[in-house]
Design a protein around this nucleic acid. Sequence first.
DNA 1: ACTTTTGAGGAACGGTCGTTCTTGACTGAT
DNA 2: ATCAGTCAAGAACGACCGTTCCTCAAAAGT
Lengths: 165, 165
Amino acid sequence: MGRQRAFDEDEVVRAAVKLFGGRAYDGVSVDDLVTHLGVHRNSLYKTFGSKRGLYLVALRRHLADVLPLTEALAAAPDAATALRLVTSADLGLLLLAAVERAPADEEVAAEVATALTAIDQAIADALDVPAPLAAGLTAAALGILLRGNPDGVGAALTQRFDSPD
Amino acid sequence: MGRQRAFDEDEVVRAAVKLFGGRAYDGVSVDDLVTHLGVHRNSLYKTFGSKRGLYLVALRRHLADVLPLTEALAAAPDAATALRLVTSADLGLLLLAAVERAPADEEVAAEVATALTAIDQAIADALDVPAPLAAGLTAAALGILLRGNPDGVGAALTQRFDSPD
DNA sequence: ACTTTTGAGGAACGGTCGTTCTTGACTGAT
DNA sequence: ATCAGTCAAGAACGACCGTTCCTCAAAAGT
């Protein structure tokens, strides 16, 4: 048919995940995307439709990368392991999407809610704890990620948490 | 000397806290501020210097409102009470500032870090627990706030948490 | 070899951004 | 009564936003 594209769509989306995960949605301009993604403006719009379209694709790719995390969670023996798994994952875009975009974009809100629920469920199943408790653990992990200190804090929490078992 | 101003600066700052706490920094335009704050463009720039200047003032006001929270925390008898105090507080702007602005504005980052440390310290003192554990509790509270479910989740966490005592 | 389809390339669009300028009304001090 | 200083009001600024258009080069189908 026509000329073949000179960029790898998967690479582009991954680079977009990195960019959108690093700063706010409105802080990433289309110029930034064109510069850092190695895709021409025109191809970007031809492929993803709009900036928001690319963002949604990037978000879904990011959330798809969370699936392996839930599988790893299924084998977690205790809360400490589960918390460490979540806090050591790269969830930058998920975090930013939840705080910043979800309130303004219900499609983003739906994706985020689904992903968080999946993590909750994986924790609930693995540790055999009630759903609200699993959701609390997920929330705690997100809070730790948000504070940017993966070490020490989580350990202190779960050390106390696992002791009654 | 001149004409007296027709707006209450305190009211304006409080309205700004509400606006900036509701959506991303770049999502709040100066037009939005002028419209919802009841201050004229010119007065806004005369009083606060810039949009970022107003944001910083609003952030500091918001964080000043956190001080009473730390005082209340000092009297918290257990983790459940502490967590409930934090998760029932209005920390929208703090949360948004931590996730979205802090990475891009080191002055914001410093303010946020100071506020979070103050909460950590208050919890550590009240519950007589080590600092990392207190920081973990603060993080958990932030995560719960971020998920937007103040009830149930926190209770499930702390019920388990306080039981060994 | 020729046509057709598609991407690359870059200029350009209208709109909105944060910010500033100009003008006139109001008020305290001389 | 006059003057100086501050505020309100809104037009206007250049810069940048997301998006589109136009032209040319490359490659698949005939």
